[in-house]
Nucleic acid binder design. Sequence first.
DNA 1: AGATTTCTTGACCGCTCGGTATAGAATCGC
DNA 2: GCGATTCTATACCGAGCGGTCAAGAAATCT
Lengths: 195, 195
Amino acid sequence: MARPKEFDEEQALAAALEVFWEKGYEAASVQDLTERMGIQKASLYNTFGDKHALFVRALSAYSTETLDWYREQLERPGPLRVTLATMFREMNEGCEDDEDCRGCLCVNSAVELAPHDPAIAALLQRHNQAQEDLFRRALERAQASGEIPAALDAVATARYLLNVIAGLGVARKGGPSQKRLDDIVRISLSILDRH
Amino acid sequence: MARPKEFDEEQALAAALEVFWEKGYEAASVQDLTERMGIQKASLYNTFGDKHALFVRALSAYSTETLDWYREQLERPGPLRVTLATMFREMNEGCEDDEDCRGCLCVNSAVELAPHDPAIAALLQRHNQAQEDLFRRALERAQASGEIPAALDAVATARYLLNVIAGLGVARKGGPSQKRLDDIVRISLSILDRH
DNA sequence: AGATTTCTTGACCGCTCGGTATAGAATCGC
DNA sequence: GCGATTCTATACCGAGCGGTCAAGAAATCT
């Protein structure tokens, strides 16, 4: 044992996540990162390896957090349609006046990095599969309870919902009107309504 | 008059578009661009101004081309549902084996640049409005012909369809299975089916 | 206390970035 | 042919990039 770190690794990672989320991977310079993390360059490299490794850790943390959030929401009792409407409303909240328009880090990373970065592509694929499973299971529960038609293809519908979310992630980057987002959510969820 | 250019400006612009489409704005270096455009650095700066101006021209050209394509497709006679299914299939074609996974340049640019680049954000907003209008008018025609319920909100549904397309643009970046894309399209279009 | 180990600090590295200046070649009007 | 003009080619620029290194400071161990 010797001299301990003067900074909280988790806290520094969270700060790095913020920077990557706001700027993207390429546009986030090591200087941007160290400033927001409150540490020196050498500490970053000693602790996290390099910029890419830091990004992988940040994206992994983001993936875990958001999956936890989705799980918590989707396993909440009550009609799935209400749950989904609430989730979507919460996701789109405060993005009109917000200056940053960060969107969803997974969407951002898929667009910026997935085609040329196998490690990121694999991470995102695992994330998508996990998210799809969460939605599929929620749909199957809603089918079992009779809320939603049993004829509906749960896997395909889960993928559909993920696609809606990805689209919203893009829409949020452009500072859209709240009405536009509400339109999208209303129509997207109407698929679960009657039949 | 004096010495004429040795290269075709439109052709060079098309080559630049390819590079931006594959790599994104930041990751496309001026060297990448000049190599693919087949011109020298000074020619690029003399002809197009700077990298950003070149990108604006490339993105504008892309916007025009794709809007023309959407218009051509949507004004084709026949049931709108068939037209949309054909469009979506064509969009997703050959993206599984393709190595590049370029997705949609508008989506890519919205994610990478819109929050921090007002010029690009404005350009994309105009593009989105134009695209929304095309879809809305097609929906209204389909409503007039009785193919689609008149009760349906044409504006909201147009926005919904644009959102589906944006989602697919993200999905295509990750080299998804064809089945996943087909699932998304099938469920997304089912909104126009019965009622 | 002293030796050891790890962290912090800040200077430093080579490289590539977007962008420019200069010189020479080519084409025009006359 | 000749001058004017505008192209191409290449060397070059300062700045910022990601990443490293050496030295000093601080904490733990015996």
